[in-house]
């Protein structure tokens, strides 16, 4: 395990590259989900009676 993590001495670089990628991608995913939730909630609060036009997916 330790040998795998060190990756011939480049472990820290490889880990940060994969870790940073995961962090940024998951970050924008969560931010987008939140954006979707808040904007749909706001829309529903404005037109609570109308759900037929496909807004509520």
């Amino acid at each position: 395990m330790a040998e795998f993590l060190s990756m011939g001495g480049y472990g820290s670089f490889i880990c940060s590259a994969f870790g940073l990628s995961a962090l940024v991608l998951i970050g924008i995913l969560i931010q987008s989900q939140r954006f979707l939730k808040t904007s749909e909630a706001e829309l529903n609060s404005l037109q609570p009676e109308d759900t037929s036009d496909g807004v509520k997916a």
Binding site: L29, S32, F35, L36, S39, E40, E42, L43, Q47, V55
Partner: peptide
């Protein structure tokens, strides 16, 4: 992510119009 964001933008657009 594009699909999530476009749905959100579409809702935001409708909110603005309303």
């Amino acid at each position: 992510v594009l699909f999530i964001r476009s749905r959100a933008e579409l809702s935001a657009y409708k909110v603005r119009a309303l």
